[in-house]
């Protein structure tokens, strides 16, 4: 599978850009948090596309964001 570059992304309509990023992010997140992958991916997709592209290139920053998202999700669920 070819890397998702900023130029390939920019060529897609806005509503497809997040979907394209999500399709790449989901399997990476699923490897770490199988049960929460859908929610975590949805949370991370709220981040700017440029930052999401950097995260796809950098497993370390991706995993840091995943842990951040899990903490936010748990805090959110505790409030419900």
């Amino acid at each position: 599978q070819e890397p998702l570059t900023a130029s390939r992304l920019a060529a897609a309509p806005l509503h497809e850009q997040k979907q394209m990023i999500g399709e790449r992010l989901y399997p990476l997140i699923h490897d770490v948090h199988t049960q929460l992958a859908g929610k975590i991916t949805g949370m991370l997709l709220e981040i700017d596309n440029s930052e999401l592209l950097l995260m796809l290139e950098s497993p370390e920053s991706l995993h840091a964001k995943i842990e951040e998202a899990v903490a936010v999700l748990q805090a959110h669920q505790a409030m419900e």
Partner: peptide, 26 residues
Amino acid sequence: SNGSSINWPPEFHPGVPWKGLQNIDP
């Protein structure tokens, strides 16, 4: 809870249009 945040975050599933897109490109 006022009930408005229960559906947050919008979950993403491969091959399914992400519902969070409604906020970005209605």
